[in-house]
Structure formats: C-alpha cells, structure tokens
Design a protein around this nucleic acid. Structure first.
Lengths: 214, 214
DNA sequence: TGCTACTTTAAACGACCGTTTGAAGTAGGT
DNA sequence: ACCTACTTCAAACGGTCGTTTAAAGTAGCA
C-alpha cells in the first residue's frame, strides 16, 4: 500500500489537472447547468469516465474547480490583510478595500469569472460552499473595517461589505458597462477598472449614515 | 379569419398566463439550465406540449418571462424619472437613484429575482436581451445623472452606474449579507434594505474622483 | 350538421445527460 | 513471472431533456 509509484502517479495527476483546467474554463463561461461532463472531457482530451473516476461526480468537480480558483485569491487577500495589521497605524478603509479587491482579479479573467459564477448559481447548489469558502475571510475583513470606522454600527458595515462584493462581481462579470446608444465608457486596463471600483466602494463604505455632513 | 372568438380565446390566454407564471417562478429560483419545461408544465398544471405551442421554444419562453418581469419595473422607473424632470430644479443624484432602485423591487422578490437571474446567465444567452431591455433606460438615467454632476466625466459616470447595478443585484439575490461566525447583520424590511443600498451607491456616485476633498 | 380554426392532449422522437461497468493497459514489488 | 494497485478506455446504463406528431376536443359560423 501507499505505493505512490512514480511515472504512473505523474500521469494520473496530469489528467486530473487537465480535467480541472477544462472544467474551470467551461464552468466559468457557461455555468454549472450549461456545462456537460462530456464537453469537459473533450476539452481536456480525456475519457468521460475519467472525470467521475477522479472527482466522483459532477458536483464534486464543480466544487473542486471553484476551490482551485478561489484558494489562491483568498490566500493573497488574507496575507495582505495581515500585512496591513502589522503596521503601526490601523489601516484605512481604502487600504483594506485594496487588499480585498486584488488587481490580479482583473488580470486573470478566468479565475475571476469562475469565482463570480459561483455567486450566480442557485443557492441550493452553492449556498454552503460560499459560506465555507468566504466566511472566515469576510469575518476578518469586517473586523479590520470596524477598526477603521469604529463609529459605524456593525450591521451597517456588514451590509456595505455586501454591496462592495456585488459591485466587484459586476466588474468581473462584465468587463465594461452596459452599452447603449451614446455610451462612452470603454474597456479599461485592469488597473484602471480596479481604480474606478475602489473609489466607488470606498466612498460608499466611508459615508456617514446620517448624510455626508450636517 | 381573425375570429377571436371568446371563451375559447380566454381559455387559451389562461393557460398561456399559467405557463408564464410558473416559468417565472422556476427560472427565478433555479436559472435557465436548472429549469425544465416539464417542471414548468407541471407547476402550471398544463401539458408539456402547450409550452412549445404558445411560446415556440424554451428560449423564447425564458425571454417572455424576463420581459414580463422587467417591463412593469422599467416602466415605473421611466415614469419616475420623467416626473423628476418636470420639476423646477434638476434632480439630485440621490433622487435619481431612488427613482431607479424601486422599493417595490425588494417587495416583490419574485420579479426582482427573475430580473437579477438574467444578469447571471451566460452572456451568449442573454447578452442581446439585456442591451435591448435596459439600453434605452440606462441612457436616460445616465443623462439625468450627468445633469446632476456636470463635472464628472461621462465614462466615469457610466462605470459608477455599472457598479450601482452590481450592488443592487447583490441586494436582490441575497436578501441578507453573507453569514459567518460573529455576523450581526440581519434580514431587514425591504424599505430599510433599500435605504442602506441607496446611501451606499449615492456616496459612490457623488464622490469626487480626486478624493473626497483636497 | 358539416366546416373551419384554434387549443389541448398522450405518446413518442432522437439526443444528450451523469454515471457505471468490466475489460484492457501500465508499472512497481516480490 | 506473477501479483497487486492504479489508471484509462469503449460501451452501455437508465433517465431526462426539448421538441414534434397526430389525434381528439372545443367553439363559432355557414
């Protein structure tokens, strides 16, 4: 037992990775219901049965694809937040937001789209998954934001963080605003997209609940 | 020809309406790919073939369900915007936002969920549909916002309106913020949800692009 | 009462779905 | 060489999908 041979295991991991990569591409583009295991297997140049062999079921493959996408993003988010916490002064809301809305989000559309897609699937499919993957992260970010704005009641802060996520997902899902006759907004480089978004949500977060100023 | 008999036509419209209503419920909950025509027919207590007889295809039924949901909402949005335009002073950004983020959105979860769901479906399915249904409305709202903030460059305004929509969809899709250990935010009455959202996005819209104040 | 147009129905169509099976293939251990 | 464990594969499983068909039903009109 526990042979972990060598070339054989290497091949096995290769097909596993190929399936995962193809799954990310297709799930991100067409969603869970719009993607078939056969399409994934074809894109990965792998037998259909291999998907079930390596992941057990379509739903497990979807979860694996999601975690594969969101794990590095959230690890970076956590590292950045901890780096902020080790500075002398408590970080501003803007610094915290910039740690969360990683510019690399906009630079790796595939990972970002996969993450955004999960929020769009039906709650029964991804509800527990979202809580599991984002719960601890949200907890820490909101705790940090609370230090930056001690006068803001916690429930309001949590709602604002909720809206922040919505605006971010909108940026990810559509890389430019809705086009209509007369529209002038264009596709921006990722860094500028993030800049627009950060300014928007920071203003929303910092705003005094009793009105801008009295 | 053109008989338009009477009781017969009435029955025909009844089944058509039943199908449409069932479709809205199921599409809103489980999305396009997660909803089958058979499930719709069963909920509507109608033969499966009736769906194709009245709507031609599943895709057409989806579009009809979407338009049925969004038409009254957008008509009200347009009416409110025109009412604002007839006042002496040009409306503030907040007034315009309140005309757009209709509180009835939060009071009729089914209509709102259906509207939000469309933004989550794959672009190839709903891309043209979104532009067709929201294009003219967005054009007018952005024009109104431009009068309220003449110093803000148009592209930036369009991006901010984009984020506004994202935050609104987040409010619709999840009626409370993400739960995690220690979370305090609770489900709010629709009016207060809208209030939180309006404050957030108005601050983001009004914010000076060079920073709050120099 | 036939005729016509419209609507509903049960049944079936071929296609595709996620999953399973059992055999074939591969490679290290003894 | 044989055994074992792991991986791949073609083929098929039962089921559900969206759609179509052809017959039955309904109601106004001549």
């Amino acid at each position: 037992m526990a042979t972990t041979s060598g070339a054989l295991r290497a091949d096995s991991r290769l097909t596993r990775e190929a399936i995962l990569e193809a799954a990310i591409t297709l799930f991100a583009t067409h969603g869970y219901g719009g993607t078939s295991l056969r399409a994934i297997a074809e894109l990965a140049r792998v037998n259909i049965a291999a998907a079930n062999y390596h992941f057990g079921s379509k739903e497990n493959l979807f979860k694996a694809a999601f975690e594969r996408c969101v794990a590095p993003i959230n690890a970076r988010r956590l590292a950045r937040l901890q780096a902020l916490g080790q500075q002398a002064k408590p970080p501003t809301s803007e610094a915290i937001v910039r740690a969360f809305i990683d510019i690399e989000l906009a630079q790796n559309p595939q990972l970002a789209m996969m993450m955004a897609r999960v929020f769009a699937e039906s709650q029964s499919l991804v509800g527990p998954l979202l809580q599991q993957v984002f719960g601890a992260l949200a907890q820490r970010y909101i705790a940090a934001l609370e230090l930056a704005q001690p006068d803001l009641p916690r429930p309001e802060l949590e709602w604002r963080f909720h809206f922040l996520i919505g605006a971010m997902l909108q940026m990810i899902r559509f890389d430019r605003p809705l086009e209509f006759p007369g529209a002038q907004a264009t596709k921006l480089p990722p860094a500028e997209q993030v800049e627009q978004l950060v300014r928007f949500v920071v203003a929303g977060l910092n705003q005094n609940s009793a009105g801008e100023k009295t």
